[in-house]
Structures are given as structure tokens and as C-alpha cells.
Write a protein that binds this DNA or RNA. Sequence first.
DNA 1: CTGAATTTTCAAAAATTAATGAAAATTTGT
DNA 2: ACAAATTTTCATTAATTTTTGAAAATTCAG
Lengths: 168, 168
Amino acid sequence: MKLSEAKQQFIASWGAFGTHWGINRTMAQVHALLLISPDPLTQDDVMEQLSVSRGNANMNIRELIDWGLVDRVIVPGERKEYFTAEKDIWKVATQIIKERKKRELDPMMKLINQLSTVEGDKKDKETKAFLDTINGIKKFGEQADKTLDTMIKSEESWFLSTMLKMFK
Amino acid sequence: MKLSEAKQQFIASWGAFGTHWGINRTMAQVHALLLISPDPLTQDDVMEQLSVSRGNANMNIRELIDWGLVDRVIVPGERKEYFTAEKDIWKVATQIIKERKKRELDPMMKLINQLSTVEGDKKDKETKAFLDTINGIKKFGEQADKTLDTMIKSEESWFLSTMLKMFK
DNA sequence: CTGAATTTTCAAAAATTAATGAAAATTTGT
DNA sequence: ACAAATTTTCATTAATTTTTGAAAATTCAG
């Protein structure tokens, strides 16, 4: 398989993959493109290589920056902004976990905690079933919360172990 | 907060939550409804309680059965089919992980393995960057694959122990 | 300060995804 | 085997999400 073909394949598949995870296709494609680019790219590079409009490229690049997956790079003597993606896939995973935890797990747990205060007779079948479900989710969420925090915090030690692996 | 209000809240939020995970709103709502129902429900119960059409209810119930999250229940002396959801949230999580692994991780790894055979000079910057990314994903995927298999096979306290192993 | 380069916004259009509901198919009791 | 009950299908419609591109805002060199 030729490189150009493999690149296209990777970008297309990463985009399709993203849609299964609530991420829009273009955003995932921009991320894929930056992941395999040795040097930072400009918005125009992204527009051209993915055949998307200026507005679309801009929105999705900013969204990736929000997610902490892409950084702006200043190139001395250049007016345009350049963008680059974090290449260490373990760091990418950590960052995604961190953001999704913040955006999804935390609000869900807040809601579950509210719902667990529902008034009603615990002898009532409907009430009991509701509370059993809510409390099950609560316990699960608390465990997930702790575990994910541990994972997120241990980031630095992964970096170290990754570096060690690199040199042997 | 009253039970009826809490139920509505839970169903609506679970539905919204689902959309962040590539699951359609109605499917997540049907799941939520069955999770908090002490007894099995019929398609008509689902249609009525969620105000959705027959076709929609039918499609989403079947999809949940495909995912292994909902079962048909035979009620003796009744013509209609009844449906019930697995209530143990740890089992629910395991089942979802199992299915997503099969539907998403496995195909992605197949693609990555193909792409890692790309021809080209490893001295070329573009080729090197591509292969570095692909190989990084490959290693990550292999580790994730093992870890998820362990999680699927083991009971209860898998979450913390396996996750910690993954990152050390 | 000026104006050209660049980035950002956002209303409208396009594309995608989900829902409806009637018809077709299937199941089951008699 | 019949027919009523129930489930499933799927073409059409509706809702949602994404993309476009031109205008507005911003940045920055001279």
C-alpha cells in the first residue's frame, strides 16, 4: 500500500470511528491529519487536504484545542497560525478521558445525587426499583470517578515510563 | 422531588447522555425506562410512556436486545411480548464494553494492522510520522484489547485493579 | 494609524439521522 | 385453516446536525 493511500484510509476511518463516539466526522479527521503530519499545519493546509470550508476547518480546529488535543504553534517570521497535535497516544487517551469525565460523568453524577433524594415509600415497588437503579449507578459512578482520577493523575509517570521504553 | 418527576428527569437525561456516546436518544430512553421498571413492559407500554411511534419503539427495543441489554420475557397466558432490562449496572457496563470492543476496537485494529504494512522509506519524514502514529495506536490498542478482555471475564472489582495495571 | 492578511462568526443551505405510521408479515388461539 | 392480535418493515416525513461562505472582527507590519 502506498503512503498517500494509507493516509487517506487512516483519515477516513478515524473520522468514521469518531462518529461512534459522539465526535463529528470532520473534527476526528482534522485530528487524524495532524496526528500523521510531521510538521505543524495551517488552517489552509487543513482546508485543502480535507476539502472542507474555512469555517468548518476553523470551528473544528478550535474544538480540538478546547479538548486539549491540538496546540497553536508560533512559527517565527510567519503571519499565519500553525497547529500541531499531541503525538503520544497515551497522552491523547488521558486527555480525552479527562475531558469526557468533566463533561459527562461529573454532570451525570450530580443529577444522580439529586435523584437519589426522591421522596416516597421504600416499600412501594416503583419507588424501590427506581432507587435501586439510581443507587447502583451512583456506586458505579463513584468507583469510575476514583479510578479515572487515578489514571489521570498518573500521567506524569506514564510519560516517564514511555521515555524509558523509548531508550531501550 | 416526586417519583414521577424524578423518573421523567432520569429518562430525559439518560437519553441526552446517550447522544454523547453515539447512541440514539430514544434507544437510551427505552433503556432508562426499562431500568427503572420493576416489572417487564410491553411495546405498547414503551410507546405510551415515551410518546413514540410503534415503529420507533420496535426498532429500538430490538436494537437493545442486539446489544444484550434487554431480554424478551414470556408471560404465561399473555399474547404480547414483554421486555426487561438487566438491572445490575456492572453487568450492563461489561456488556456495553464487550459489544463496543467487538464493533469498534476489533475492526479498528484490523485496519491499523493493514496500514502498518505501508511501503516506503523509513527515512522519509512523512513516512516515519505516519508509521510512528500507526504503531503508537497499535500498541495502545493491543494493551486496551488485553485489558478489556480481562475486564469482561472478571467479576465485580475488575475496574480499579485492571485499570491500574494498565497504567503501570 | 492604515490597510492587507488572517481569523472568527453565523445565517442559510445541505447532509445526515431519526421518527412516523400504514401496510405487510408473522404468530397464535380456536 | 382461519382470522384476530401482534410484530416488523420501510418509504416518506421530520428533526437534528454539519457545512458553507461571505461578512465582520481582529491582528499586525510598516
